[in-house]
Structure formats: C-alpha cells, structure tokens
Design a protein around this nucleic acid. Structure first.
Lengths: 339, 339
DNA sequence: TTGTAGGCGTTATCAT
DNA sequence: ATGATAACGCCTACAA
C-alpha cells in the first residue's frame, strides 16, 4: 500500500494537479462540482499531503525540538508531558533529545535539530554549559528558541523560570520561624543559574534573620541525586555536627537520600533533624516521613514554554516583530512531616 | 543567516550542482582537486544537506515515532531513555506521543505518524485498545512496527515483552515459600495482555502449591495508580479480611499506596501483612519499608525494541525479507523489607 | 571528469 | 474555472 498523491487523484479524475490542490485547499476559484469530486475521491483514498514535499516548499517542519538533561526525572518528564500535549494541540510534533548533562553532546544536538529543520527549540541547559555560541547560532539562524528551568541570562531569547532566590529564601525563612537554627544546605554546582540562586536565597534568609552564614554547614552535591544526599548526610553526622537541626537540599532526590540515611541511623525526623527538599517530586508525598518541599509547577513551566515558542513561531511566519519575554512561574512551599 | 545549499556552492565555485553533490558524497569520478575545493568551501560555510529535500527524494525521514500511554512514569520514561539514546547512535531522531491510555487518541496518533512519514513506529498499547485495524494499516503501509510491553499477540510484527505469567508465578511462589498463605492480589483490568498474564501467574502459583484460589481476595485496580492501591487496601482492611497475610499488586505504584495505608493504620509490614509490587520503580528502594518487586529491565526493553525496529528498517531498505521476532526480556525478583 | 536533465510532491503565480 | 509552469533542494542516470 502506498500513499496517494495529488497526481494520482488528478489522473483518475482527468483534471490537472493544480486544480486538485486548489480544490483540497478550498480555493474560491474552483467550481463546486469539481471540488466535490476531488474531495470525495481524496477522502476515499485517505489522501494526506506528503509532509516532506510540504516542508521542502514551505521550509517549515511542523516539528519542534526539545533538549533536556535527562528523561527519567520527575520534574523533566512532567515538563515534557506538558510540552507534548500543548504541541499536539497546535499541530506540532516533538523531537526529544537528552543532553545527559553533557555540554558537548548538547552542542551536537543543537546542530542536529538545526539540520533537521525544526521550527523551534526548547532547552533546559546542561549544568556544565559555559560557552553559548551554539545557542547564539540558533538565534542567528532565526529559529525561535526558549530556555526553561536551567537558563543563561545573557542569551537574547524567551525564558521560563522560577524565582529560585525567593523560593529558597522562603524555605529557609520558614525553617527559621519554625525554630530551626543550624540549617545545613546541600547545594548544587555553582554553574546553572538556579543552583546559584537557591544558594543565594539560603544565605540571604539566614542573614535577614540574624543567623551567621557558616560555610561548614554547606555540602556539595553536584549531581543532586540520591546517593549524594545519603553520602553527605553520612558525612555530616560522622563529622559530629551535632547541633545541626535541619538539612535543606537542592532537590528532593537528594533530600530522600538524606532521609534514608537518617532513618537508617534512627535519627528522628524532624525532631532531631528536619529535612526540606525542592521540586516536590511525587515520591516525596509517599516516603516516610513525607518530605516538605517546593512545588515548582513543572506542568505550567512546560505549558508556558511552548506557548512562548509558538507565539514566536507565529510572529516569524507573519513577518511581525517579536518581543522576547521572561516568564516566572509561581512556586509554593509544601509542608509535610519532615519539618 | 540562511542555510547554505548545493546551488550556492556550485555558483561560488563556478561548477555544476551535480559535481558539488558528487564531491561531497565522495564519488570516484570527481577530480581530487575539485573535490577538495568543494569540501573546503562546504565546511567553511557549514553546509549540511536540506533534510526536507533528502526526505522527499528518498522517502525516508530518519525519524521514528514512539507512542506510550504516559510519560511521567518510571517504567516508560526508562524505556524512552533507551530508545532515544539508541536511536541517536543510529542517526535517527525520535518523535514521542502520549496516548494517555486513550484508544481513540492512539488511533489518531498512529495516523499522525504515518502522515509525518516516520521510518518506523514503536508502541506500547493503551489499555482500552480492542480494535487493531489502524495498527494493521501501519503494517500494510510497509512501515516497520514494533510493539513493546503492552502488546497484541495477533498482530504480525516484532514484539518485546516480558514473561508476565512466569514473573507473577515466581512472586507468588516466593511468597508461599516464605510462609504466606492468604495472598490478596490487586489486579489490573483484564485487557492488556500483561495484566491478564500476571493474574494467570498468580492463580497458577496458588494452584500448584495446593492453595485454593479465592476470588474475594482479588481487588480491581484498573488505573494501577497510588490512590487505587490505597483505597483497595482500606477496603480490604475494613472488610475485616484479617487472615490476609500478603498483598501482591499489579505494579509498584499501587503497592506504595498499600504501604501508605498500612503504615497509617500502624499495620506492621511484613509481620502482619507483606507487600509485593511489580516493575521495581526507583521509588520502591527508598520508601519505608523498602518494597519487594519484580525488576522488569525497562532499559533493555527499550534497547531491544529499537534494535528490532532498525533491523527491520534496514531490511526494508535493502529489499531483503524480514522475519518478525518476539523477544522476551528477563525479569528478576528483587527482595526487600516488605516481604 | 564534468554537466544536463528529470523527478520526488506540493504549492503559487500566471496564463488561458 | 482550469491548467501549465516553475520552484523548493537534493540526487542520480545519462550524456558530453
């Protein structure tokens, strides 16, 4: 079985290809009778235009590309969920690539997408990313680009982020108000902006509440996974930081590592040590104790990102100017039993 | 900035388009000198062939489509991870769609992918799927199709599955050997094959061990999510099934719902009631108590699925005949603290 | 060794 | 109201 073409319809009906094309596109200058004959036959043959030919002609693929660090990740998969659903509504398909937090791979993938001819690109940057030339290239090519979550401030494109400084500030302020005084922080690498910002929020909240920042309470968790949380908690306990009464982490997965270690050691949460995460993974609502966290509204982040992208694609098609926006998604503290 | 074309290179060098094309494809009948001139210029202009034109001509998109029920799902996202990585290695991109367990949507998406001109389709069927005509259509069109996880036996295409009957049989046998006698089962809908098979395995294991199957110990969990696990556990306890000493569920998420309810009610796991899941989600290794489960090797499932797909695409291109295969992925019991 | 020409399928402009 | 024609960019059989 082969796909039907305009040519076949034309030959069957004994008319020209261009008339067929016009009939199907409901041009006004085709007689009602011809139109009907064409449409009926097209339907019975299940005709759909060849997208390769359409793309070649229009230079549009009706496809967008998304690059995320990793797929098996509650936050990113939720964002993708939104991106895919919204794109489908708009008649677009989505190609997904994983940078695996590898800067070089990310670069290669951007080029793959450009070569592929996608109509727009959404990306959450890999942690290592320092040089942004290849992203500038996307902009130079005139391909709409939206950064989300892990962004770079300097690039001239739309962005969707949360206010990490404020969210983090709120967490620490909440902990302080609850009576915690020695709050450890398991921070991420100081490369993605949000990692920096969460750390800043932590420090600022301490400062504003008259608590002196103590760098010995800060542990590094560059990958921000379970094992690092577990290992850092172990280190903290074994270093006899007995006055630490709360641990706040860059993300939930790390916090869950912490919880697992403390549970193993029979250290009571939150009585002896409280734990606060970030991102509100589903998992956090079902572990013991349930984990307090920051709801990041992943779905909305995805929604807003494609929305901006399609707006820009639209403007481009119409030849209208487009003004880049930065949208900040609201976050909320979700208080559970770990604090 | 615009993409370079063969024509531009040809004009710049004052030679014909076909010579440029041949030079870049390293045809033997182009002089070394011309070849060098072309390649150098192409490189400096960062020439890459227009994929729309290539696709139109070759009728290949170097893109495959994947349909899964849902993205925010540990098992499926792990499979996607494998699919994307393996495809990239083979120079293919991946378009992902979510059927949302909606049969009609799935049908529409299959058509979208066919119209898009993907070179192959991977799909894990929605639960409701009963009519398979539109999948037959894929086969009739000659588009390689591989079913994984939730399959239909009757379709003539490659498949990647696990042996659900055996895996389930092993779980229940293990429980019986451990001394559990009244084993409740929270089963899924009897529509996807694997749901049926897990139920069969459960029954067979009871039978083979001289335990009479008791339908009052079977609870339905059609969506197989957390809430259903929680609700069914509640129902079971409130129905005073006090002799039940183990609960085995269709999937981990449901089991985790069960654990949460039992924990809330201070029912000791596994002393009063043991819990066994299926799929070995990451989450299961970090909840309290850690959950015994069946490792399904999602990544391998993804790997094998694309491998079969690419084999078939390859055969098709070479015009060779292709023999469909059904690959069964090994599973293992992962015993943790809940049993 | 190089170039010409035709076609992949669609669409839009310009005749008729 | 309909059709002929060219173009999108690439590829290749064939001609020179």
């Amino acid at each position: 079985m082969k796909k039907t073409t305009l040519k076949e319809i034309a030959e069957t009906l004994g008319i020209s290809i261009s008339t067929v094309s016009k009939a199907l596109k409901n041009y006004p200058d085709v007689s009602a009778k011809t139109k009907k004959r064409v449409i009926d036959l097209a339907e019975s043959l299940q005709f759909t235009p060849n997208t390769f030919a359409q793309s070649l002609r229009s230079n549009e693929s009706k496809t967008i590309g998304v690059i995320i660090p990793s797929m098996v990740h509650y936050y990113f998969s939720s964002i993708l969920d939104a991106i895919i659903k919204e794109s489908e509504k708009n008649g677009y398909m989505v190609i997904i690539l994983q940078s695996n937090e590898d800067h070089e791979l990310e670069k290669k993938q951007i080029n793959l997408l450009l070569n592929k001819g996608v109509d727009g690109i959404l990306i959450s940057l890999a942690n290592g990313t320092k040089d942004f030339q290849y992203l500038q290239k996307v902009i130079d090519y005139g391909i709409p680009l939206v950064l989300f979550d892990k962004i770079n401030k300097l690039l001239k494109c739309s962005k969707v982020i949360i206010n990490d400084i404020k969210a983090s500030y709120d967490v620490v302020t909440y902990l302080i108000n609850k009576g915690y005084k020695r709050i450890a922080y398991f921070r991420g690498d100081l490369n993605p902006q949000n990692s920096i910002d969460r750390f800043l929020g932590y420090k600022k909240a301490l400062e504003d509440n008259g608590i002196k920042y103590d760098s010995s309470l800060v542990y590094l968790s560059p990958i921000a996974n379970f094992d690092e949380g577990y290992a850092n908690a172990k280190k903290l306990i074994e270093e006899d930081k007995i006055d630490v009464d709360a641990i706040y982490t860059i993300t939930d997965l790390t916090a869950i590592g912490v919880i697992n270690y403390l549970n193993e050691k029979n250290i009571k949460i939150p009585d002896e040590i409280a734990v606060f995460g970030f991102s509100n993974w589903f998992m956090s609502s079902v572990i013991t104790p349930t984990l307090s966290s920051v709801e990041q509204n992943a779905y909305r982040t995805g929604e807003k990102s494609v929305e901006l992208l399609f707006k820009e694609i639209d403007s481009k098609q119409k030849g209208e100017p487009f003004k880049h926006e930065t949208i900040t998604i609201d976050t909320e503290l979700v208080i559970r039993n770990s604090t």
